[in-house]
Amino acid sequence: MFQCITYQLEAGVAVITLNRPEVMNALSTLLRAEMLAAVLRAGSQARVLVMTGAGRAFCSGQDLGDASGPLDLERVLNEEYVPLLKAITDCPIPTISAVQGAAAGAGANLALAADVVIAAESASFIQAFTRIGLVPDAGGSYWLPRQIGLARAMGAVLFADKVTARQAMDWGMIYECVPDQDFSAHWRARARALAQGPTLAYLGVKTALRASFGNDLDQQLALEARLQGECGATEDFREGVAAFLEKRAAQFRGK
């Protein structure tokens, strides 16, 4: 069905693999459309979504050869990138970016749109926009200052320096940096763990943490109370309490 990505679903884990290794998984119009369809499918079929790349890179960013004439970048961003990025950030299940090799330009910021970023130690993140006379897009100007602070974000973008996976973890840009030999097994284990967890609580976590940037304390406390009330009425909460009292592993069903 897909030409530029692969989609696999197993044991509640949906894996979307960007599959244009010959161009380091550069983002074409078709790839973005297929990825959007796959993210929406995962949101209704799976309990966790993983995005990764085939070959030696996660994603090299916008495919600059994917047009017969000059790129209308404003249109491309509004019509093709924004729906995809919103689908990822609004996805009702946890999302993971599993990054190997380079994540550059829009490819780096696509990775950062996920809830959790796990990178191989040899991976790198490059805000390459100024190298071709552009500003950061695909959400980079939103995520980076919030994740690593204005000073580091400004330097990373202005100089277009390569940020290693270890730096990215130390700065708070990503969650984990994993030795290359352990990378595949590690992100798969992380995905399986989330797939076995309390899906509705995870959605509440995503809602609460993302809302905190725009809320004052009173608003955030009220949101916490509402979300906790909703979670407290679920079968997952009852199962979690029962498992705790019975000293066994909980069997969550996402209800």
Rank of each mutant, 00 (worst) to 15 (best):
F237S: 09
D72P: 14
F244D: 05
N78S: 11
E230G: 00
D137W: 08
L84E: 01
V205Y: 13
P179E: 00
G55E: 00
A57D: 15
W171L: 08
F244K: 09
R41N: 06
V23I: 15
R32T: 04
Q45M: 15
T95R: 10
G61P: 10
D72R: 14
V15W: 00
V135W: 10
V163T: 15
T199H: 06
A67G: 09
G139M: 03
L203V: 02
V23F: 01
N215S: 07
M35Y: 04
L18Y: 10
L245Y: 13
L223R: 07
A128Y: 08
A189C: 08
A249M: 12
D63Q: 05
D182G: 00
I126G: 03
A165V: 10
A114N: 12
A42I: 04
V13P: 13
S28D: 06
E10W: 00
I126M: 09
R238P: 00
F244I: 13
T130M: 14
G53N: 04
R253N: 09
E22N: 08
V205E: 13
Q100W: 11
M51R: 10
Q196H: 12
G12W: 09
P198E: 00
W171R: 05
L9A: 02
A189Y: 02
L85W: 07
E22L: 01
L221N: 12
L150W: 05
A160W: 04
M1H: 13
K255E: 12
D63N: 15
P21R: 01
R75Q: 14
Q45L: 14
S97A: 15
L84S: 01
T207Q: 11
A37D: 12
G155T: 09
Q181S: 06
L77W: 06
D66R: 13
L27W: 09
E230V: 07
G69C: 03
W187V: 04
N19W: 05
E22A: 03
A211L: 03
A211W: 03
L221K: 12
L71T: 09
F129A: 14
